[in-house]
Amino acid sequence: MSLSLLVLFDFIGTVAFAISGAITGIQKKMDIFGVNILAIVTACGGGALRDIIMGSFPPQMFINPFYVLVAAIVANIVFGIMYFHKGIPQKFAGLYDRGLFVFDTLGLAAFMVDGVMLGANFGYEDDLFLLVFLGFITGVGGGVLRDVLSIQMPAIFVKHVYALPVIIGGILMVIMHEIMGTWNAAMISAFMLVLVMRWLARHFLWNLPKVNL
């Protein structure tokens, strides 16, 4: 059951982050090649960083490029829709922003689960800090690379407690596994917690403290 759930979370995260990357590339007026690269980096970059930390060379995206292909297909579908509709009409600007938030949040939650589970599958079930960190870097890594490549401040540092829900979700996931001895409930609960926290942060405009100069 855990394996099938993990495949589902992998697919959700890849599609969601590919859409997020493609939309960002289109917003930054990139051509179709740039949109594809940004979508693939957003969808697969966090997993590549995770693999490097785990000492898994080359990263899985190069050994089994299935999810790279999925990201590219999604990117071209998004590009085609936007190209033939000449971008986003002004009256749908708010819907566009909400859609980007939804896909970004789904990707964060799904890849957080994926990162924790990969560490557990590598035999590090008892190293709770490592599991949480792997969930964190898998969840936010692709988004950071997307923002850097599109020349904007990474959302992880400024936007709606972007990273905090991932960290808390990872902590919940490993604690639930320690208590219950099963990953299934822990995966679903942690995934839902990230979604809820991100929605609450957006709705109530929660942000971490910052110095306003």
Rank of each mutant, 00 (worst) to 15 (best):
G45K: 08
Q60L: 13
T42P: 00
S56W: 09
A39C: 13
V78K: 05
L69E: 11
A71L: 15
G55E: 06
G80Y: 09
G55M: 11
F66V: 10
N36V: 15
F62K: 03
A71H: 08
A72C: 15
L49S: 03
L49H: 04
P65K: 06
A71F: 12
D51S: 09
A71S: 15
M61D: 02
V70G: 04
V35P: 00
V35I: 14
G45Q: 06
V68P: 01
F66C: 04
V35W: 02
D51H: 08
I53V: 15
G80C: 07
A48I: 10
F57Q: 11
I37C: 02
V35G: 01
I40F: 10
L69T: 13
D51R: 09
V68W: 12
F57Y: 14
A48P: 02
I81G: 01
L69V: 15
F62W: 11
I63H: 01
D51F: 03
F57A: 07
L38T: 04
V41N: 07
I77D: 08
L69N: 09
D51E: 06
L69Y: 14
G47P: 02
R50M: 10
N76R: 12
P65E: 00
A39D: 02
M54F: 14
G80S: 07
F79P: 03
V74A: 10
F66W: 09
G46R: 03
A43V: 14
Y67R: 06
A39Y: 03
C44Q: 10
L49P: 00
T42C: 12
G45R: 01
D51G: 15
S56M: 08
G45N: 12
N36A: 11
C44K: 09
L69D: 05
S56A: 14
L49N: 00
S56V: 13
P58D: 00
M82Q: 12
V78F: 12
P65V: 01
P59F: 04
A43N: 07
I52Q: 03
L38P: 00
N76W: 15
S56R: 13
M82E: 13
N64V: 14
F79N: 12
P59E: 02
N36Q: 12
V68Q: 07
P59T: 12
M82N: 12
G47H: 01
A75M: 13
C44P: 03
A43W: 03
R50Q: 06
L38V: 13
I40R: 01
Y67H: 03
N76P: 05
M61A: 09
F62S: 00
I77F: 13
G80P: 02
N76Q: 15
G80M: 10
N76E: 14
A71G: 09
I81L: 13
N36Y: 11
V70R: 08
I63S: 02
V68S: 10
F62I: 08
M54W: 10
P59D: 05
P58W: 12
M54E: 05
V35N: 00
T42R: 00
Q60C: 06
A48H: 04
D51L: 15
I81T: 05
V74H: 00
I63V: 11
S56K: 09
P59H: 05
